[in-house]
């Protein structure tokens, strides 16, 4: 028999995790669909479920000086309405589904689900998000890139839970979130792009690009980005061919019911090129 547990407190949730093998259900917007059964019958979970949606202590957004701390259960709608949340993350949140999902969906759930097409995750890669991962008696902090390892796969152990997301404070001169779904709202990404750049006196001080739905995880090539920091705008733009070439081995999309690999690949490169060529102008 599958067990269903609602912990009363976060502490209690950690206790349960240390004792059993639970699947953690946050908002449920993903798990309830994946495990859907016939209407009027319970969702068909194959694993014990820990329902944490009511843990109010995991809902917060706090400014902690050099970073913004976001409690794991903070929903998209709250992020969208909070002044301290970076604009690029808000732009992304606005494109995730509709209002009815945005009030329930959480960033931690988006991470735990680890879909290569998860728009929230893509933006967290861009923002160098760090995750605070806890288990009973210990905690660790890890860059999001090091937590998500494949479609639906993370380095989280059975005892662990994502407690908090930390966004280092950075100011960009331009950011962009651009996704292609089957339609203009309420759609899963065929390809998605997040970009950020800081330009001072014509010199590129920071450059970041993340691409979703074109590989098993989000693609962000920090070494390629670093290579161009300190260059002038035109130097970077003149290098567009080599920049794109650097992404070639990493852009390996698939054919599925939503799109095909040729299109995904082409659009991914178009998105890179378009961001680079317009990084000094406002959209």
């Amino acid at each position: 028999m599958v067990k269903h547990v609602i912990p009363k407190t976060y502490e209690e949730a950690l206790d349960h995790l240390s004792e059993g093998t639970f699947k953690v259900l946050a908002g449920g917007t993903d798990l309830m669909v994946k495990n859907r059964s016939w209407s009027e019958t319970p969702a068909r979970f194959k694993q014990d479920i820990l329902y944490i949606h009511n843990l109010e202590e995991l809902r917060y957004i706090e400014d902690r000086g050099d970073y913004l701390a976001i409690g794991a259960l903070t929903d998209y709608e709250t992020l969208l309405r909070h002044e301290a949340v970076p604009q690029v993350l808000k732009d992304c949140m606005l494109e995730i589904a509709g209002p009815g999902i945005r009030k329930v969906g959480t960033l931690a759930g988006n991470i735990g689900n680890a879909s290569p097409a998860a728009d929230g995750v893509l933006t967290l890669y861009l923002l160098d998000a760090k995750l605070v991962i806890e288990q009973k008696g210990s905690a660790r902090e890890a860059l999001i890139d090091d937590v998500i390892v494949g479609p639906g796969k993370t380095t989280l152990s059975n005892e662990e839970i994502i407690k908090e997301i930390r966004l280092p404070k950075t100011r960009f001169t331009k950011t962009r979130f651009l996704k292609v779904g089957g339609r203009k709202a309420d759609a899963i990404s065929k390809v998605a792009f997040a970009g950020a750049v800081t330009i001072e006196d014509g010199v590129v001080k920071d450059l970041r690009m993340a691409l979703g739905a074109i590989n098993v995880t989000v693609v962000r090539l920090r070494d390629v980005e670093k290579r161009h920091i300190g260059e002038t705008i035109s130097a970077v733009q003149d290098n567009i061919v080599s920049i794109k070439n650097a992404y070639v081995p990493h852009i390996k999309p698939i054919d599925d019911q939503r799109s095909n690999r040729v299109y995904r690949k082409r659009v991914a490169f178009n998105m890179i090129e378009d961001f680079i060529t317009t990084m000094h102008t406002q959209d």
Binding site: G182, R183, A185, Q257, R258
Partner: peptide, 27 residues
């Protein structure tokens, strides 16, 4: 321009409202 449905060996690939895209209020 928007609504895509096709099959692979007789199995429809778009079989729910997530994958079979109809226009929303912003489309």
């Amino acid at each position: 321009y928007l609504e895509v449905m096709n099959h692979e060996q007789g199995k429809l690939k778009q079989k729910n409202m997530t994958d079979y895209i109809i226009p929303t209020s912003v489309d």
